[in-house]
Design a protein around this nucleic acid. Structure first.
Lengths: 123, 123
DNA sequence: CGGGATCCATACTGATACTG
DNA sequence: CAGTATCAGTATGGATCCCG
């Protein structure tokens, strides 16, 4: 099934969906942001600690890691669990909602991973 | 099938995949950009003209529309067809590669569209 | 170890004007 | 109609320092 019954274009035009500032656009901006995707994919396997995320998401600044995690937490995609110890420990994991989202994100990321070399190579 | 055989986290750590500046990251940034997603989804239905894209992708500036289209064209996801007439006419459509990509993009966008109101509502 | 606060550079936006 | 060019204002991201 390549297409959908009601075309995406129709839905974008009708009913104010996809209008600037609508809920869909807001969430899409969070999820599809440069770092949002990578963090969600990194969490798809298992709960991960702050420092581990920082290493695995190559190139992210501490600011953007914190900011993106807070946004994803506010959206209900990521759960933050603090263990009060010395040294302190914070684990991040996907919520049920986050899991559903990542389930739909991985096929896309996998496809890009597979085809990207050929694409960039010929630019 | 919620998960994959080899965890995404492992793949992010191993083999320099997902390292900053790698082809996957570059293409991902193009596709997952604020406007990239919306333009690709808008084109999923049928070839679309410049002016129509401008209207359907609410809030985009002419500058970003032109820039994003050029990037997606360079990546081989979008085809640009000029009809030399008066008035001039330019149609944009998905390439085969772009179609495969959008096929994996739509389930994600659909899921977000369905769940976004509840998410933003409780923030 | 897990952040918060701050400052600076860049990227994006919006408006306007101009072209083939 | 389908763009390109330019400029000024703003949002976003990165680097660094600091703290519990």
């Amino acid at each position: 099934m390549v297409s959908q019954q009601v075309s995406a274009l129709e839905r974008m035009l009708d009913s104010g969906n996809f209008s600037s500032g609508c809920p869909t656009r807001v969430v899409l901006d969070h999820v599809m942001s440069r770092w949002g995707v990578l963090i969600l994919v990194a969490l798809s396997d298992r709960p991960t600690r702050w420092g581990e995320l920082r290493r695995v998401v190559d190139g992210i600044s501490e600011k953007m890691l914190a900011q993106t995690l807070r946004t994803l937490e506010a959206d209900g995609f990521v759960h933050r669990e603090v263990t009060a110890s010395i040294p302190p420990r914070v684990d991040y994991s996907l919520t049920g909602s986050g899991g559903e989202l990542v389930e739909r994100l991985l096929p896309l990321v996998d496809w890009v991973t597979e085809h990207a070399p050929a694409i960039v190579g010929r630019s």
